[in-house]
Structures are given as C-alpha cells and as structure tokens.
Amino acid sequence: MGNVFVLAEHRQGELRDITLEMLTKAAAVAWQTGGEVVAVLLGSGVDAFAEKLRGYADRVLYVDDPLFADYNSEKYQKALAPLIQEHKPELFMIGHTTQGVDLAPALAVELKLPFISDVIEINLVDGKLKPVRQFYQGKVNANFSFKGEPPYLLTFREASLEAGEPNKSGSIEKVASPLQEDIAYRRFVEYVAAEVGDVDITQSEILVAVGRGIKEEKNMPLIEELAKAMKADICGSRAAIDAGWLGHDRQVGTSGKTVKPKLYVAIGISGAFQHLAGMKGAKTIVAINKDPDAPIFSVADLGIVDDLFKVVPKLTEKLKELKG
C-alpha cells in the first residue's frame, strides 16, 4: 500500500520535464509511505520513454496504442479511470500543465476522488499527506489535507523542484489498451507552431521585460527608451501580450518563451510562477516594482521598490550619461 502513481506527460516526441519532477517528488513521498513509485505511460511506440521512466520508478505501466499517439483528455480519462480503480494508489499525481488542468478535474469528478490542484509541495504529517498550494498569485500559501479514503488525486506545479538523477531500475509492464475504438466527440486535429517574430528573445543577451505595471500602451515609449539606452530587446509578461502592447513572440513564461539572458530587467512585473519559470535562469535579474511583496523579488539579484514611472526615466537618463 501507499503507492504513488505519476502520469507521464509527453508531446510531439518529447517527454515533458514535469514527468521527472513529479517522479522525484513521488519517490520522496513513497519513501515515507513505504509504497512504490509507479509511472503510467499512455502513448504509441514510445518505448524510449518507458525506458527512461524505469530509472525513476519501481514499475512502469505502459499502454502502447496508436489511439494514444496524441493527447486527448477524453481518451486519457477513459484509460485512467479503470486503472486507478484497479490499482487503488494512495496518491495519483498529474502535472499542473495545459494537459493536466484539461484532464484531472474531470477525472476527479468521475471517480469522486479527493482532489487538490496546483500543488507546490507535499508534506507528510503523522502519516497523512498534506499538500501545499497557493492563493492570491503566490502571496499566501495554504496547507491542505485530504479527507476520506484514497486514492487521492493532485496536480503538481511545474518547476516546483529539480528532477533528480535516475536511481531505480523498475519493471516495464505492458497494459492492454482500454480503448476499443477512437472517441468521436472530441478529436485531436493538429498542433500549430508558435508565432515567429523579428527578434528571437531566446537569443538576446539583454532583455527589458514589461508587465501590467506599465498600465497603458501610451507608456511603452518609457520602456523603449530604456531598452535603447541598454541596447536591449523588449519582452513582456502575459499581461503585456494580452493587452496587445507586444506580439506573442515576445512573451516570456510557460506559455511563451524560456529565456536565459545575461541581464533581465523586469519592470512592473509581479512575477506569477508562469513568468518566473520562463526567466529565472537569467544570469542577473533586476526587478523594479512598487509592491515589496511581489514574487519577482524572490528571484531578483537587484531590486528597486518604487513607482516605475519615477524610476525608469531617471534610469534611462543616467545610463545615457554613463555610457556617453
């Protein structure tokens, strides 16, 4: 008993990072519950993934069926529901990703499972699982607990931890496909690649990033002036792209690009975890924000807590002066 199951996530021939992150967490939890780590893989001809997963799991349950070539929430649900009922894990983990949020709540409703979403940490207190999740965009954490009997279901946030090294050599067990035929009412059509713009911000050495704090498009010249003085490219958080101030190709974060410049200057960006995931690999991070509690300061090297409209013009002026 006490087994921890992890749903492997993959897309377009790639195993997603969240999978190994979850397996790493699952191993820590299972070590305390005395259970096994079990990876669940639904796919078509993805033997290489199964092989990779066995390095992190005691068992790999592998459904190999062309019907699972591409993700489809309805097919996944049809496959996972009987599997969860049969194996009755203590805990079933799904990534809090665009796949996981499209799948887990429906699965929880169908099976009446205790379900907690977007978990960032799983503590064990007196043998009970106590997931931690956040409210108010990361300003408050909450300790949760499950009530009733397992299986318990949760979605786990990406990049909450670093995946460890493989240290298991589990068995791979092929499981008969639960699907007899394709599902008609929800159909996968195709993937459409991301927009390509004039500047590839993943290659930029210096980035000035703008967020909600700039308030209006008419304030963008402030940022453009600063970027010019710094010889930087401009990028932005989701808010700046949604508002139409910048094109989609300039978005930094989980639904945009992951950047690793030498210098990243975040202006008026509070730092939602989706944004942090896309830029925390920058060598030096500067944050300018009037909210001292903004999560962006958790990854910053240098910070100014103040009104950006007072700071940015002065910064531009001083930089021009110094750089002559």
């Binding site: 205790p114 379900f115 408050v140 949760f144 509690d293 958790s298 910053a300």
Partner: peptide
C-alpha cells in the same frame, strides 16, 4: 473531500 487547514505567508527567500 479536501480541507484547507491554514493559510500562511510564504517566506520569500530573496537574495536581492
């Protein structure tokens, strides 16, 4: 089937 036990303000481990 779930319970919120308590809120707390996360410690921001800022090296800034």
């Amino acid at each position: 089937l779930i319970a919120l036990e308590n809120f707390y303000i996360p410690e921001v481990e800022s090296k800034a």
